[in-house]
Amino acid sequence: MTLVSFSQVHVGWELPAQEFTFTRADLIRYAGASGDFNIIHWNERVAQAVGLPSVIAHGMLTMGTVIRVVTDWLGDPGKVVEYSARFTRPIPVPDTDEGASIKVSAKITGLLENNQAVVTISAIHNEVTVLAKTVATVQLAP
């Protein structure tokens, strides 16, 4: 596995984009693994009663998924030294085999001291940005 080198990247450098899909089963699995059993993530009746179109993905499921664009590129997830996101729009997950998909892209938006780079991630569902200010700071090889 070759680690990405600081000397080979520049501001504007694009990471390989990926597309991810969430189905109802993914929401149930994440609820169990994370311990977040908020009912709006698995109960259609309650979700609609509070004004949502259907059950919605956990913001932390989305945040935990989209960082894969960065960690897959790095080859070493332990090199993510900081990661933040703002939850702007919910992702409704319909009761279909296809589920809901998000298109994720990322590029380097800053270079820091000590071979660290700032990566800004874009996560789009149905033409809408679902996470804002999604930024990771990563430690690169010299």
Binding site: G59, M60, G78, E82, Y83, A85, R86, F87
Partner: peptide, 13 residues
């Protein structure tokens, strides 16, 4: 209460 933002600073994994 809703979750607005989240930030992780990893001093080590």
């Amino acid at each position: 209460v809703v979750h607005g933002e989240q930030r992780f600073v990893q001093h080590r994994p």
